[in-house]
Amino acid sequence: MELPKFLLADNSNYPEDIFVLHTDYPRFLINLKDDEIEWFEDLSDENEQELANELESLIEQASAFYDAEMEGLE
């Protein structure tokens, strides 16, 4: 099975939060409410500047994914 790059996640214990799960490397869960990120990978061996650039791009992609999903629901 091929997983989508991003998935929306929901949790009734956190009704105000908006979660997006990134399924490719580096895998993470982002809360778009406050941009808090939970990593599922050990990134200690990664180039810090390269990771920062990739992270910025992935956060933008996660936000764009969420916006597109919400437009589709309207």
Results as ranks from 00 to 15, higher is better:
M1R: 09
M1K: 01
M1T: 11
M1I: 09
L3P: 01
L3H: 01
P4C: 11
P4S: 05
K5Y: 08
K5V: 12
K5M: 11
F6A: 08
F6Y: 14
L7A: 01
L7W: 10
L7D: 02
L7G: 05
L8K: 08
A9H: 11
N11R: 01
S12M: 15
N13Q: 09
Y14C: 06
Y14I: 00
Y14S: 00
P15A: 07
P15C: 09
P15N: 02
P15H: 03
E16Q: 11
E16N: 09
E16R: 06
D17P: 01
D17T: 09
D17A: 11
I18P: 03
V20F: 10
V20Y: 02
V20H: 04
L21P: 00
L21I: 14
H22F: 10
H22C: 03
D24G: 02
D24I: 02
D24F: 13
D24C: 12
D24P: 00
Y25V: 02
Y25N: 08
Y25M: 06
Y25S: 04
R27F: 03
F28W: 03
F28A: 06
F28L: 00
F28I: 05
L29Q: 01
L29A: 05
L29R: 02
L29M: 10
I30L: 10
L32R: 09
L32F: 07
L32K: 02
K33G: 12
K33Q: 14
D34P: 05
D34W: 04
D35E: 04
D35A: 05
E36V: 07
E36F: 06
E36C: 05
I37Q: 00
I37A: 03
I37K: 03
E38M: 00
E38R: 10
E38H: 03
E41F: 10
E41G: 01
E41C: 08
D42E: 02
D42S: 08
L43E: 11
L43D: 04
L43T: 13
L43G: 08
S44R: 03
S44F: 07
S44N: 00
D45W: 03
D45C: 09
D45M: 09
E46R: 12
N47M: 00
E48S: 07
E48T: 15
Q49K: 13
Q49N: 14
Q49F: 10
E50P: 02
E50R: 10
L51W: 14
L51E: 12
A52F: 07
A52M: 12
E54Y: 10
E54D: 15
E54R: 13
L55G: 04
L55W: 04
E56W: 12
S57M: 15
L58T: 00
L58H: 08
I59V: 15
I59H: 08
I59W: 04
I59T: 15
E60A: 14
Q61C: 13
A62C: 14
A62L: 14
A62T: 04
A62E: 00
S63E: 12
S63C: 09
S63L: 07
S63F: 06
Y66R: 08
Y66W: 05
D67K: 13
A68E: 14
A68S: 15
A68W: 12
E69G: 01
M70F: 03
M70V: 06
E71D: 14
E71M: 12
E71G: 04
G72M: 01
G72R: 06
G72Q: 03
G72S: 07
G72C: 04
G72P: 01
L73F: 11
E74R: 10
E74C: 12
